[in-house]
Amino acid sequence: MSSDGTLRTIIETRKVDKRFGTFHALKDVSATFYEGQVTAIVGPSGSGKSTFLRTLNRLETHDSGEIVIDGIVLNDNLKNLDAIRREVGMVFQSFNLFSHLSILRNVALAPMRVRKMSREAAESKALNLLERVGLKNQAAKYPVQLSGGQQQRVAIARALAMDPKVLLFDEPTSALDPEMVNEVLAVMRELAYSGITMLVVTHEMGFAREVADRIIFFDEGVILEDTTPESFFSNPDHDRAKAFLSQVRHGF
């Protein structure tokens, strides 16, 4: 949110459509996301949440419709794609840390290669970010030597190293043992309050309710609900959302 209280658009999708063969994964999805907003994306398995998130940095290409990120149109133009990927960071369910690089090098690699930072500058920046996620003392280790929760915090630091305007999270805690979920959520909570724009696909309803400004409920490739956490959790409009919530409340 800017100082005068108006919302600045950061991501705009218009009638985004995506098929995998005959399977219709996204059906004319339109949504606008504003700077500083934290959006939780929820919905049943296979509803297209990951696909939607992945079209936003072109890990999946959309078939039709338009995606505009910070004024840049996402299309086959490689210049645009490079610019967008510099502004959009992503955190994956399975961390995807570079297994052959130390923690420090994992975080420093992209600033060095993409932003052409010197090694010293990139590594000192990486150390600051690792300190922010509480892992400065692990900088010399390799990903396999860290717990899942620690690896995911490194992955967040790695995404932050590019100073993205938007962070996409695809089920960042789903691959973690229960006792490690909170350390990752704590880092995400701190980020949310720092004002970065976040889109978070999650099954952590407690987190969504507490931290998100907005909830988007996906079902069979369409956005069925797009509302505030209060109204989504207390009184959803659609039966599908009610069924989903009751299922979540009773555990999977």
Binding site: N57, L59, D82, R85, R86, V88, G89, M90, F92, N96, L97, F98, L109, A110, R113, V114, A155, R158, A159, M162
Partner: peptide, 8 residues
């Protein structure tokens, strides 16, 4: 995917 998402 991680490398591409970082802009490499």
């Amino acid at each position: 995917e991680a490398a591409r998402a970082l802009g490499l």
